[in-house]
Nucleic acid binder design. Structure first.
Lengths: 157, 157
DNA sequence: GTCGGTGCAAATGCTTTGCATTGAT
DNA sequence: ATCAATGCAAAGCATTTGCACCGAC
């Protein structure tokens, strides 16, 4: 198995991200002495077409809907790998504590989000000033900032 | 039972926060037709002396260490109430997904944190510019920001 | 041919809940 | 006196794991 299965109906911009994302994941796996399996490829393939925020359950359901047969265990195991690889990131919503929510961050300049409390929609935003702000405050404490995460909770006026 | 039990060894600044915090909680409970019980008072009392980040387990252990006898169920039930009252807030650490972490936010101007990835220490920070930044970006999208949460991941250089 | 991966089902562990009793108002 | 809270133990439920078989390298 060399590449993720392709889906001709998938929009162009997803194809663009899938290839480098796949390469990053394969590199990460190789560095750990782990293998790139068809199941993992299928998960990537579905992942890039998911909404901004998704849950393990949701990913599994989408896989099944797409005709892929993967076990729940594999989905959870792969989510953990993707998190370690820095491809996805967990997100904490204020509204519920039940299931973990994840966000694709690979290929995004920013992982900051506006979370609409009225529609439960997540909008990625980019705040270049923020990076500088984080670095500045850390320097005053003798620390080195290596990442940040901002969630803004907002609603229509 | 009218007030939280006092502990003479508790530092001054904690006493300062306990009283208004207690008032806010009692008001919240009254608005829901719920009662202010000794157990809830004891939890507040222990809460204000906890580190910046704590877990349900940790709170329970501290309670026991302080000689209070509360059940695990009551701790969880009270944490939920405190969350609803806006007194504490859940925090998502990158490092683990196991237990939920909480942070006291009542009486804080800011709920922003630097999370030290080397020591797992959480440092509250205040970034007044950030509030304005959040409002500005939301306005451009026709939204009204009502809260935000920033986590900066950093370590000693 | 080796290891690591997968699926299944069972286990784990944080969190929630049902119920009888206790207690705040 | 009433209605909610507590404690205990028993669920619940998302996530993890053990194991036998399969497949990427």
């Amino acid at each position: 198995m060399a590449a993720a299965p392709t889906n001709p109906s998938r929009p162009e911009q997803d194809l663009e991200i899938l290839e480098p994302l796949c390469a990053v994941f394969r590199r990460h796996l190789k560095s750990l002495g782990q293998k790139y399996t068809p199941e993992r490829a299928q998960i990537l393939d579905v992942l890039v077409r998911l909404d901004d925020l998704f849950e393990a359950d949701h990913l599994l359901a989408e896989m099944r809907r797409g005709g892929f047969r993967v076990s729940k265990a594999t989905v959870y195991r792969t989510i953990k790998l993707l998190k370690d690889a820095g491809i996805i990131q967990q997100v904490l919503l204020d509204t519920d504590t039940e299931q973990a929510h994840y966000q694709l961050v690979y290929g995004r300049r920013s992982r900051d989000l506006i979370i609409r409390t009225d529609t439960r929609q997540a909008i990625p935003v980019e705040l270049p000033e923020l990076v500088e702000l984080c670095e500045r405050i850390c320097v005053t404490l003798g620390l080195k900032a290596h990442a940040h995460r901002l969630h803004i909770f907002a609603a229509a006026e």
